[in-house]
């Protein structure tokens, strides 16, 4: 496991995840982050710090970090026009075909568990080119063979209008990429301190993997410096508790 103090030369697990997600964002014009998503928010701000202000980062739920002036629909209208390049989704359940469930477990009419609901996923998953799936709890309960309810499908028939979809799934244990043609995840790397065997045992779906699975690279010193010096204070404005816990900001 990564170490606990941000002041050592080592790094925290959160910093590793932020660094990996920032790499996935790559060069983009506009990254939008949903509510209650401190790690995707930090990754987007890190990508912006590296890109000298690109991408534009929208943190939904923060009036200061969104430009919308036309009500809640403007986000979706923006996405429908292709003006949002990166978005993040989680799920109560995620399956091996990239289907996401934010609604319920068991029969829809007689569920055994209920989540809040699909939010914008049934739309944004189709029209945002890079959707990064994010689920810190990596277990057979969350990564399942088949979701009980498809809030948003991982892939669509050829004649269905679809300019976007999942590109990757990051968990507390590893990073998967997603191949929409094969509707299948591929294990890209296992985070330091975790093992392939542990990933296999805790994943409910089948996935591809290379003969030798790499270790997720540690965040480079420059990334850690940017994160701690530039991103942490920005993040603290929206996620004070998270920034305090991970970066010691505001203490």
């Amino acid at each position: 496991m990564a170490t606990t103090s941000p002041n050592q030369k080592e790094f925290r697990t959160e910093e590793l995840l932020i660094s990996v997600v920032a790499d996935l964002i790559g060069d983009a014009r506009h990254a939008a982050v949903g509510n209650a998503s401190p790690i995707p928010a930090a990754a987007s701000l890190l990508a912006r710090a590296r890109g000298n202000g690109r991408p534009y980062v929208s943190l939904l739920g923060s009036p200061k970090h969104t430009f919308w002036t036309d009500g809640g629909r403007e986000l979706f209208d923006c996405a429908g026009q292709g003006r949002i390049d990166v978005f993040f989704l989680s799920g109560g359940e995620i399956d091996g075909e990239g289907n996401v469930n934010l609604v319920s477990v068991g029969d829809y009419d007689k569920p055994t568990a209920r989540f809040p609901g699909s939010f914008g996923s049934a739309y944004l998953y189709f029209v945002v080119p890079k959707v990064i799936l994010f689920r810190t709890e990596h277990s057979k309960r969350t990564l399942v063979p088949k979701v009980s309810f498809i809030s948003a499908p991982g892939a669509s028939a050829d004649n269905v209008y679809r300019t976007g979809g999942p590109i990757a799934l990051i968990t507390n244990r590893c990073l998967f990429s997603f191949d929409p043609a094969r509707r299948r995840f591929k294990l890209e790397s296992v985070h330091p301190g975790h093992t392939l065997a542990e990933v296999i045992v805790n994943t409910g779906f089948e996935f591809d993997r290379p003969p030798d699975v790499p270790v997720t690279p540690a965040p480079p010193p420059e990334t850690l410096r940017l994160l701690r010096e530039t991103v942490a204070p920005e993040l603290a404005e929206v996620y004070p508790q998270f920034a305090g816990k991970v970066f010691g900001t505001g203490r």
Binding site: G80, V103, Y108, S118, A122, Y123, L124, Y125, F126, V127, F149, I150, S151, A152, P153, S156, A157, V160, Y161
Partner: peptide
């Protein structure tokens, strides 16, 4: 509206 096709929301 775009999206939705293939989801259980629509179903």
């Amino acid at each position: 509206l775009r999206g939705l096709i293939g989801s259980d929301v629509l179903a």
